[in-house]
Amino acid sequence: MKHAHFFSGRELTDEEIPILSDVHSLAVRPGLSRPLLCHRCGNTSNFSSHPCARCGTNCAYCRNCIQMGKISSCTTLYRWIGPSRRIRSEPERCTGPAHCQPAKRKLPGMFGMQ
């Protein structure tokens, strides 16, 4: 599935989702529930409230999620439940000097070596 790489392992709001074409592959749940619990980070104690432009009420929001994006009482979270993303089964191989990491040298005296 083409969207698995983007969505896998994330809890996103509708504002963070570029396209809602594969809605059948997304689980939907509220951002906050009562008693106050943030479904994105699990916070149960660090909340505040604000007059919300989205729903027109005084919404509670999670103060722990501010840097990731505000999660309010009226926020909906989406989680990927479709096929998991493909992970390469073989590690990448060195194809030339430009693609290789130089070997790390052990310095004398490190890790009990003399």
Rank of each mutant, 00 (worst) to 15 (best):
T44G: 11
T76L: 11
T76A: 04
N46Y: 15
I87F: 15
E11F: 07
R10F: 05
S33W: 04
C94K: 12
C59R: 02
Q101Y: 03
R54F: 07
P35C: 13
P30K: 15
R105I: 06
M1P: 03
S25K: 05
R63V: 08
A53Q: 14
L26G: 03
H39R: 14
Y78E: 00
N58I: 08
I19L: 11
N46G: 00
R34T: 08
M1T: 10
P97I: 03
S25V: 00
L32Y: 07
L77Y: 02
C59Y: 05
P91N: 07
E15Q: 13
K70G: 01
G69I: 10
C94E: 07
H39P: 00
H5V: 08
P97Q: 13
R10A: 03
G69C: 10
H99W: 13
S48K: 09
D22E: 15
I66H: 08
T44A: 12
G9I: 01
S21Q: 13
M1C: 14
G82C: 01
P30F: 05
R10G: 01
H50F: 12
N43S: 12
E92I: 11
H39E: 09
G69R: 03
L32A: 04
V23R: 12
C74G: 06
F47V: 10
I17R: 07
D22Y: 03
G69V: 04
S49I: 00
C74Y: 07
C65F: 07
S84M: 10
L37V: 13
C62D: 02
L32V: 09
S33G: 12
S25Q: 09
S89N: 07
T44S: 15
I81L: 02
T76H: 05
C65E: 07
P18S: 04
P108C: 02
Q114V: 04
G96S: 11
G109L: 09
R86H: 12
T76R: 11
D22N: 14
W80T: 01
I87M: 14
R10P: 02
A98M: 13
R86F: 15
C52F: 10
G82I: 11
S73Q: 13
N58R: 15
P35Y: 09
F6L: 11
R34F: 10
N43C: 15
T95C: 14
R29W: 00
P97W: 01
R29D: 02
